[in-house]
Amino acid sequence: MPLVTAGVVVLDCAEPEKLAVFYKQLLQAEETEASANLVEIRAADGFRLAFRRDANATPPSWPRPENSLQVHLDFLVDDLDAAERRVVDLGGRPVEAKDASGPFEERGCSDPAGHTFTLRRTRQTGPKMG
């Protein structure tokens, strides 16, 4: 048994209930715990994400070049366009504009509270050869 196991990723925000709704719908997750200051959800694959009330929370300012990314979430998707549309429909927004045409391997987004995350295309594996 490992000495340390992964627990839960916690995002500080002013309104954890509202942010939990965004991620529950994005990840098709279920709420597993709720209190006055914390809401936790679990996705079908077991990924756990929690939202902790912080009345002084301010959103990160990334992608401005003078600021570091600090931390963000990566979500794996098969269809970047569909996933980005879903983010926008749920109240999130794209934060990286790409000028070139055609599909991209990843796209930066933020949730309604300003936390950044990346939608990353899952790698397509070809058929086994030989």
Rank of each mutant, 00 (worst) to 15 (best):
F104W: 08
K18S: 15
T125Y: 14
D54Y: 02
G130P: 02
T5H: 11
M129K: 13
E96W: 07
S61G: 09
T58R: 13
P65F: 07
T32E: 12
A36P: 01
V21I: 15
N67I: 02
I41Q: 08
R107D: 04
N56T: 12
L38F: 15
R52C: 00
K128P: 12
H72L: 04
A29V: 00
V9G: 00
A55W: 04
V9C: 08
D78T: 11
V21A: 12
T58E: 11
H115K: 05
H115W: 13
R53W: 01
P103K: 06
P65A: 07
F51Q: 03
D45A: 08
T122W: 09
K18M: 14
V95D: 05
R52W: 07
R85M: 02
F22S: 05
Q70E: 09
G130N: 00
R121G: 01
T5Y: 06
K98A: 02
P112T: 04
A29G: 04
A29P: 11
G130T: 12
G7Y: 03
F75L: 15
Y23I: 03
G126K: 12
P63W: 14
F75P: 02
D74W: 05
T5N: 14
L49W: 14
M129D: 08
D54G: 02
G114P: 09
D54K: 14
S110Y: 04
V21F: 03
L11M: 09
F117L: 15
V21Y: 08
S68D: 09
T122Y: 12
F22K: 05
Y23H: 06
R86G: 00
A20P: 14
M129H: 01
Q124Y: 03
G92H: 05
G114V: 13
G92D: 05
S68Y: 14
D78F: 05
M129G: 09
E33T: 09
V87F: 03
N37A: 12
V71C: 01
A100F: 08
E66Q: 05
L73H: 04
G46Q: 06
A20H: 10
D89S: 13
L3N: 15
L119N: 14
T116M: 06
A50Q: 13
P60F: 06
L90Y: 02
R85C: 07
I41S: 08
P16S: 10
N67K: 08
T122I: 13
D12N: 15
L90Q: 01
V8E: 11
H72P: 01
V88N: 07
P2S: 12
A6F: 14
E105K: 08
D89H: 09
G114Q: 12
L38T: 09
A36M: 02
D89G: 06
G130K: 14
G108T: 00
L49G: 10
E15S: 11
E106Q: 11
D12V: 07
E96K: 07
P59T: 00
K24R: 15
P60G: 01
